[in-house]
């Protein structure tokens, strides 16, 4: 399973085409939409997490580019600074992928980096500001 956060930009020419539908149907990919908007110039932008088999993921990305969609990979990676984290659990309220979760009965807060989609929602919510965004070199 491979997952990545993507920013897609649609030109006026392609904004009315069912591109995401094809991405799901033809490439068996799962998407989680975080933002979608069309500006007054009729250009669209979508921020979403795309998830699937690595091979499907690559083919899907090629399809998007061939269709005229500009694809930008979000090069962020969220890490936890364990020196700063005081293990409260506030972040678990907002984490959409369950990467941050409470281990019971210890009530310690665990961070499964492989499940993190780098949405960064936890960063401002952490009272100790222990969640840091770093450049993900693998994604560049």
């Amino acid at each position: 399973m491979h997952a990545e956060m993507l920013v897609l930009q649609f030109s006026r020419k392609v904004v009315d085409q069912p591109i995401i539908y094809r991405l799901v149907k033809d490439f068996n990919l799962e998407f989680n939409l975080l933002k979608a908007a069309i500006n007054p110039q009729q250009e669209g932008v979508i921020v979403m997490e795309l998830r699937g088999h690595p091979q499907d993921f690559r083919r899907g990305l090629k399809f998007l580019r061939d269709a005229g969609v500009q694809v930008k990979r979000v090069a962020g990676e969220v890490r936890r600074n364990d020196e700063l984290c005081y293990q409260c659990g506030a972040c678990t309220a907002v984490c959409p992928t369950g990467a941050l979760y409470i281990e019971r009965p210890a009530m310690s807060v665990a961070f499964a980096a492989e499940r993190c989609s780098a949405c960064e929602l936890c960063c401002p919510v952490c009272p100790a500001r222990a969640m840091e965004v770093k450049l993900n070199r693998n994604a560049i």
């Binding site: 005081y86 293990q87 409260c88 659990g89 506030a90 678990t92 309220a93 409470i102 019971r104 210890a106 009530m107 310690s108 807060v109 009272p127």
Partner: peptide
């Protein structure tokens, strides 16, 4: 990690560090 309120299951979130 969860509780019920009016038949709805709600995730519970600690702000106090038990650790």
């Amino acid at each position: 990690g969860k509780m019920e309120l009016d038949g709805q299951e709600i995730p519970t979130v600690p702000l106090s560090s038990l650790v």
